[in-house]
Amino acid sequence: MEHADARERLVGAAADPSALDRLAALLGSPATTADTADGRAVTAGADASAGVPDPSAPAADAPEAADARADSDLRAHLETCAACRADLEGWRATAAAIRGALASPDPRPDAVPADPAALRAVTLARVRESGVRTDLPARPLVTGIRSGWASRLRRGAFSNPLRLAGVAAAVVALVLGTAVIRDLSAERDRAQQTARAAASLAATVDQVLQEPGARVVTLHGPASSSASGVLLWGPSSGQVVVMTQALAPPPAGSSYDCWFEQAGRRVVVGRMTFSGDLAYWAGPLDAWTSGDPSGLPFGVSLATAGGSPGAPMLVGRL
């Protein structure tokens, strides 16, 4: 049997997944099990005998006899051809991947972007920008706060929960306002994506602030900096939202990590996302902490990929 014929037979065998395992077993390879995406073993080939013809079984009629002869030729070829045995292993891995994917329900059967046209426009805008951005001056990592809402929070001006609810709307207005001022066609698409992120963040802020006992904590920068940010904490849900306009986008390969400290350990819980000038992180904290997290130090630090968080850029207490 020629290589081309052998490979064609292997594709055919892959159409009957258990036939691949049977073929490999005849060659002395151990049977493989497929695993679901989360690592649970599934019974690949457990029903191998159910309705799948054994390649070595004698055939009763002419077409099956021809198949049996072809299978026999294929086995003979595989025993002497390392390249085709490797191809068989490739098909077995492919089959395991398909079985693994189909073994559990797809958590996202309709995985499409929220706004495909906006994503397309933003992507192509980024490409256009990529040709003119190299001469932009580097921004400092920490700058002064650019609007008054965080400093008003620091002064306690939003101690009333009803007034706090305005934060969400302010976030949206702030981000959208920035984009409108620029009013560049390339920026319009980016603004749409920014608006979606801001709307999602605003909804989370609103949700946290409606919780009984919701707390607002001001995060301060280093002593030499006027930087600040705000942390919202919903004790019922354990949800935390951190927002600041005091951070410039991190250098390539770096990120701003959010962390808290407990029992002498610094625990990284998330990474700040940038949307326009606003940097934010929203996520659960209760799964990380043991006991009441009130009073625990919380901070934001610049970290390089794979490294530990550096000195705090913002810090406060829950």
Binding site: A37, D38, G39, A97, G100, A101, P109, A111
Partner: peptide, 23 residues
């Protein structure tokens, strides 16, 4: 657990590709 994280990631990505292509 017995599952190596890198192994889990490999399986998850393969499953993600298969599901995306099937979709």
């Amino acid at each position: 657990t017995a599952t190596d994280p890198a192994e889990t990631v490999s399986r998850r990505w393969a499953a993600a590709v298969v599901r995306a292509v099937l979709q």
